[in-house]
Design a protein around this nucleic acid. Structure first.
Lengths: 343, 343
DNA sequence: AACTCCTACGTCAACGTTGACGTAACCGCC
DNA sequence: GGCGGTTACGTCAACGTTGACGTAGGAGTT
């Protein structure tokens, strides 16, 4: 009937008029501040309800002294990637408890896009940002940081100072994976990695080298393949490894999609029961494959929780020295990493 | 040195003072409106750059006549679920092209949480919302809709009128899956479904019934299991099916996690090469399993794109009658759905 | 009785921006 | 020389809210 379908949103003024008080008193009631009597409080509440009043947070945060928008930005590489999605979810859970909402975006590992999204977030006056930095230089991030925006990096550390970050035990876990393979007798362990511009790739490669050294194995350059962005490139590169005179007997795949590509090739050549495989990053159904895929599993919820805690602490004015939190990853044995060399 | 680390953000007034013009002129330059001379424009741009000025979108949208926040809300069940994550990504891509950012939240299929998140979004004056409705009543959604918030539902239609939605061919594709199994000679086809409160579950069950009828098969109630929320329940239920005197020779699993649970049991009892399986919803690595899992694949990016298009059209004032868009799903044959009955 | 203090309100201005409107200067044209 | 039109600005108020501050009335204290 008198549905206020497309009318203006009710404001404090409307509520005040209906309750016959001043807007300031409405403000007090809505925000639960003292200075409003019981009877007036009831009147205001009733008026707000009948009008369907919702406070306007943007106007409120414009005027308030703390200027909080109760919103943070989350800028990951690709929100449809399971790793990123799980991370977002963990941050979101923590944010909810702080009454904060999350503005989310995908940078697609593109500097321009990352910069544009940072500006969009800053223009909306988010209280802080959680960022998975794109590879290469971090000028845009540093610039944003220098403007005073609270910032926490995840998965990859900053190349500039003064900023918190949360990463996993990339190097140590990679070394452990290689040692695990070496302990089974493998001497020809290949490394397949993602783009070298990524810090995680570099760390995992360093861990691989440390593992070889610690096991007394010599590095064979022919068994190292990097810059494999995507499963297809990984599959091709894996194929080339097995065309070598002395092919590897074990593979260490240093990223999600690289693992998938390698798996595809092993299956295609019916090698999956004879060549050992350990991948970095867990993925759904890894246990349902035959053999199950042994992986280094990151504690994704743990990383997200920690990142959220850090950003909220900074937003709340914590000025202690920047933290580099490291959340441990663990080797999950499922079979593929426990295959002994044939010879 | 004179880094303005923790100082106030520069405003139009600051830029205006530096460029020796009025704030209104700064506004014109920043928004690219006519009425500013070339020389003044340059001065303002230079001043904005040196101060690191960023327009305050919240103040701007408060004052502007259209009141747009250039932000939409996305309220899905669980952002860490691959289906939801892919959908979010599709919406986000479309939003980016419209210069709009996405506030994302997970309702966890909980009415209270959904309502709270809707209020949070409305409080931040989002221009519209894309919602995956929680099961059961939709009072909160309808209430929000009645306030005038542009809204599009995805995956599940509204139980109230006047609202756009985007779903897939749940019923038809389920019927096709059952017919596909029947054509191979299966007569005992089981149905395993998620919570019955979900519209998608009901539709897929109806499709199952239609398929049986069209194939001239009779429904065996013992082969129908519903309310399987999560892989564990699905695994148990599947086990019980194979304890029957006349167990099924084929399974139609009507949801993601249900498929995984059924697969687990088939493997545990070494039935996976002898019992046919078709699942609703594709998932990563379905092709890497042995046998590959035949699925009904939804066009998730297509659904997200369509939902985004609809919400932006409504925000732009489109008042044409509400649309129920249906994005077709397709059967992807991978082996598990092509196993013939043993007898 | 005069004082202090407290409670429960109200008034006013301001947050950063833009719409409505004003105005001065200039151009062109009869 | 007067008129209308255009361009390039500026002034002012308002968007919805809250901080600073004012005030009336009552209670308690001396």
């Amino acid at each position: 009937m008198d549905r206020t379908a497309d009318r203006r949103e009710p404001t404090m003024r409307d509520v005040a008029a209906l309750a016959k008080v001043s807007t300031k008193t409405v403000s007090r009631v809505i925000n639960g501040l003292p200075g409003a009597g019981a009877e007036v409080t009831d009147r205001v509440r009733a008026a707000a309800r009948t009008l369907g009043y919702r406070p306007n947070l943007t106007a409120s945060s414009l005027r308030r002294s703390d200027r909080r928008s109760a919103t943070i930005g989350v800028l990951f590489e690709d929100l449809s990637n399971p790793f990123d999605a799980a991370l977002l979810r963990a941050v979101e859970d923590r944010a909810r408890h702080a009454g904060v909402l999350v503005l989310a975006g995908s940078s697609e590992d593109d500097h321009t896009l990352q910069r544009e999204l940072l500006v969009s977030l800053s223009t909306r006056r988010v209280d802080g940002v959680v960022v998975m930095a794109v590879g290469g230089h971090q000028d845009a991030l540093q610039q944003e940081r220098d403007r005073g925006t609270p910032m926490v990096l995840v998965d990859r550390p900053p190349t500039f100072g003064g900023t918190d970050c949360v990463t996993t035990t990339n190097r140590d876990s990679s070394r452990d994976a290689v040692l695990h393979l070496a302990a089974l007798g493998h001497r020809d362990i290949a490394f397949l990695g993602d783009r070298r511009t990524l810090w995680t790739s570099q760390e995992r490669y360093t861990g691989y080298l440390e593992g070889l050294a610690q096991a007394g194995l010599t590095l064979r350059d022919a068994l190292v393949r990097t810059d494999l962005h995507g499963a297809d490139l990984a599959e091709t590169a894996t194929g080339e490894l097995f065309d070598l005179d002395r092919p590897p007997t074990a593979l260490f795949t240093a990223q999600n999609l690289v693992t998938v590509g390698a798996m595809r090739l092993l299956r295609a050549r019916d090698l999956h029961r004879h060549v050992a495989l350990i991948g970095f990053d867990d993925f759904p159904l890894a246990d349902m494959l035959d053999p199950g895929i042994t992986v280094v599993r990151q504690d994704v919820p743990g990383i997200g929780r920690k990142a959220a805690e850090l950003i909220f602490a900074r937003i709340d004015g914590d000025t202690s020295p920047p933290v580099h939190a490291v959340v441990p990853a663990a080797l999950v044995r499922r079979g593929s990493g426990e295959i002994a060399p044939v010879s």
